[in-house]
């Protein structure tokens, strides 16, 4: 068998070599002269501030997103094995209104907040110009529909649009919730993750999330394992996946 290696190290070596080899086209003094001598009237890049609340939506897959009105049509392939969502940010509380399709990572509402803050949503047809103010946003879904984030007035919900509330389940600023998300992303990926690999990943996650009182334990080696989070005992238990192939036997 080939020697085990750390892909992060390999990637690091490669990208640093790439970075060393290529230089900017512009001479710095030319760049300075060009920028400072030009009349400045472009939209200023906003300062970023970390958002307090981060939400994620469990399990959804979108294949084609077509946004109505004068909006944007986009085709985005999403693998059903990932909690990486393709999301439509709607500019009005209207199921057929215009909007923008985005790849939202694990944070659909956050992605749409970013679009509202940038002013991109206010530019959509029919949108009320809210300037930089982000309206109350609610994630909705329905049969055959992707996750859509609507601006909805207080006291109203997805039901007013004939849709369901998307399964907005957790605030990922909570490290235990983040731990659960990581565990789910590993064993819920549709491919088998071995006990050993899952154990290493969960130990990594515990360290990263600074959950110092937690431990990861393996209950039996298996080619396909699952991780169960037990907050009462501060344990991540890694066990054979009851739905996976049988425990590996030595030939």
């Amino acid at each position: 068998m080939p020697e085990p290696f750390d892909p992060v190290d390999v990637l690091q070596t490669h990208v640093r070599a790439v970075a060393l080899l290529e230089r900017p086209r512009d001479d710095p003094d030319d760049l300075i002269a060009r920028i400072t001598s030009a009349a400045v009237s472009a939209t200023v890049v906003p300062l970023r501030t970390p958002r307090r609340r981060r939400w994620w939506v469990a399990g959804a897959a979108t294949t084609i997103v077509v946004v109505g009105g004068a909006g944007v049509a986009a085709m985005i392939g999403a693998r059903p094995d990932e909690q990486i969502l393709d999301v439509v940010c709607r500019s009005t509380a209207d199921r057929s209104g215009s909007g923008l399709a985005v790849v939202a990572g694990t944070d659909p509402i956050g992605a749409c907040v970013e679009l509202w803050r940038s002013g991109a949503m206010s530019e959509q047809a029919g949108a009320v110009d809210t300037g930089d103010v982000v309206p109350r946003l609610v994630a909705c879904t329905g049969p055959g529909r992707p996750v859509e984030v609507y601006p909805l007035a207080e006291g109203t919900g997805c039901a007013t649009l004939g849709l369901l509330d998307a399964d907005v389940t957790a605030n990922v600023d909570d490290p235990v919730v983040e731990l659960q998300e990581i565990a789910a992303s590993l064993y819920g990926s549709g491919v088998c993750t071995s006990s050993e690999e899952l154990f290493r990943s969960m130990e990594d996650a515990l360290k990263t999330l600074e959950l110092v009182d937690w431990t990861a334990v393996v209950d039996g080696d298996a080619k396909c394992a699952v991780a169960a989070i037990d907050p009462s005992r501060l344990v991540v238990r890694i066990a054979p996946d009851p739905l996976g192939p049988p425990t590996q036997e030595e030939p």
Binding site: D173, S185, T193
Partner: peptide, 15 residues
């Protein structure tokens, strides 16, 4: 969240 994202991405790369 950034720490979790990095950790998750590295786990996925290894997986």
């Amino acid at each position: 969240a950034a720490k979790a994202r990095v950790s998750r991405a590295r786990s996925r790369l290894r997986a």
